[in-house]
């Protein structure tokens, strides 16, 4: 399956409001539409993962990710913060684009790692940061994913 097939329009925000790492993580989790308690558990897991080392891989892109029992299938979300925030990224530059990936500990189709790899590959495409800056609608984001055919 290509990356495009994992994303829903509802889980895309091109105007994240958060100004801190925690606020952005909470906003991204909110895009998944899980209940409040599950949101809280996901936040703790993602925060702990960030404490092991930032998921900001450079070039303005971060890929917060974790496994959690509070989801029953792979869930992904995308968020953009035009001004960027300090996410303690590897290159120390502000992060503007966030790909959230959450999966249950045991998956029948085992998609978590392949999707994580595909997002990392997508992020390395030379034109991706500038293209992500230009998109105006969730459909344009989905079209970009489809165009890259990763």
């Amino acid at each position: 399956m290509e990356l495009r097939e994992f994303f829903d329009r509802d889980a895309i925000s091109l105007d994240l409001k958060g100004e801190t790492k925690d606020e952005i993580l909470k906003e991204l989790i909110g895009l998944l539409g899980v209940d409040e308690k599950s949101e809280a558990i996901l936040f703790k897991m993602l925060r702990r993962r960030e404490n092991l080392g930032s998921t900001g891989i450079g070039r303005g892109i971060a890929i917060p990710h974790c496994r959690s029992l509070v989801v029953n299938r792979l869930r992904v979300a995308f968020g953009r913060k035009s001004n960027g925030i300090d996410f303690q990224a590897i290159d120390n530059n502000p992060v503007h684009y966030f790909f959230l990936i959450v999966a249950p500990p045991l998956e029948v189709s085992n998609q978590y790692l392949p999707v994580l790899g595909k997002v990392a590959q997508f992020a390395k495409e030379p034109d991706v940061p500038s293209r992500l800056a230009e998109i105006q609608t969730p459909d344009e984001f989905l079209n970009l994913l489809a165009e890259k055919a990763i």
Partner: peptide, 11 residues
């Protein structure tokens, strides 16, 4: 749930 999630991460 948190313990089990951490164990999955560790695994």
């Amino acid at each position: 749930l948190q313990i089990q999630d951490l164990k999955a991460q560790r695994r």
